[in-house]
Design a protein around this nucleic acid. Structure first.
Lengths: 217, 217
DNA sequence: GTCTATAATGAGATAGAC
DNA sequence: GTCTATCTCATTATAGAC
């Protein structure tokens, strides 16, 4: 077999692992399944990685970067002014069509989050994963603000938190039920509701629908 | 060792399994871990169940019934008229305090859903689980409608779908980040947004904020 | 019915030849 | 560097004594 640089081998194994996770789930992603998918010997695995945990860490990092590259282009597509609601609805549709295109991959993302949450020493990986989601959502919301010429009436990070929660709920619902109409209803609701957190840029601090804070009981 | 009826033994093993899933995750829920938790021998397990899969099926069914008993009482607590927004906000707070009280259990629910989705022949268990969630949400929304004397402006099942998506997103966000303030912001948003799907009962068909359907592209 | 003992399988990891 | 062969361990499941 050809002599392959360690970096390439690591990358090949990580990508093979991602395919296995998507197709069969984290539980079935054994070192043997990974090397079979990559067409390598078991020993090559342990030459490239000290162990399975090291690969899983790199897998999660890789997968988050990929998510970034997949979603980032979708946000800056339109530049002409549109309503805030339509801008958000279009972004959600774009995201959701990605979920429909590769449901297994989306399932894998949730599984990897939970794997990280359950594995001692990897909790921060789950948080970093969501930190990236929030950043991506904030960028998308910033773009929507420019397109619609409206400003957010509360900190954009708060809106991003809400948007990610909505996309998580949307994705789980569709993965479980595969109900396109229900997913559409959730997206319609989300676009309407989130758009209401913005106000005309010119009016400045005018809050048409201020978000009341409920004091903790 | 005492002679225990098969039904009791099955129930004891299921409850032990639930504790193991909550504490250590589905992946660590081996037959050995279960019988150790239940204080039984390994052979007793295979006397009560034909195998691990049979127990997992019963575990998921049990856990969904429990969720029903835990959440149902919280919905009918208040009877005096309140605003729709406050009724929903209070229900969310009640749900969320349950998540805070036992985060591991909530993590377990997500893991069990994904386990069912990944296991051939168990996909319907995940759907049944969510079917119950939707029914529970619809009951809560019905109660909120009576309390606030407002009617839903779209089918209650659609509102229930949205509400479950929101609670899923809320729960995941908090499980990952443990950020109480962020969770509060999501709940405030959810209560405002969902309440806007209702209108005064007396005005009947008046839709203050009709939910536009976006036609599929 | 319940136990101990033990198959049978598959996992992660390593030794050592080439 | 890469391979085959093997070690060690944990798993599910069963056999057979009591």
């Amino acid at each position: 077999m050809p002599r392959i640089p360690a970096d390439e081998r690591r990358a090949a194994l990580v990508h093979a692992a991602l395919r296995v996770v998507a197709e069969r789930g984290v539980a079935a992603t054994t070192t043997r399944a990974i090397v079979a998918e990559a067409g390598m010997s078991l020993a090559s695995f342990h030459y490239a990685f000290t162990g399975r945990d090291e690969l899983m860490v790199e897998l999660i990092n890789t997968v988050v970067e990929q998510e970034e590259r997949t979603l980032a282009p979708a946000m800056t597509s339109t530049t002409r002014p549109v309503s805030m609601r339509d801008a958000i609805r279009a972004g959600l549709a774009e995201f959701f069509s990605g979920v429909q295109r590769d449901p297994q991959r989306e399932k894998a993302m949730f599984e990897l989050t939970q794997y990280a949450m359950r594995t001692p020493g990897m909790e921060m990986l789950a948080r970093r994963q969501y930190r990236r989601y929030y950043d991506l959502a904030a960028s998308a919301l910033e773009a929507a603000s420019e397109m619609s010429e409206q400003d957010w009436t509360l900190p954009i990070d708060d809106v991003a938190t809400v948007l990610v929660a909505l996309t998580d709920g949307l994705t789980i619902a569709w993965l479980v039920n595969r109900d396109d109409a229900a997913a559409g209803a959730i997206m319609d609701f989300a676009a309407d509701a989130v758009a209401r957190l913005a106000a005309d840029g010119r009016t400045g601090s005018l809050h048409p629908v201020p978000l009341e804070r409920t004091s903790p009981s």
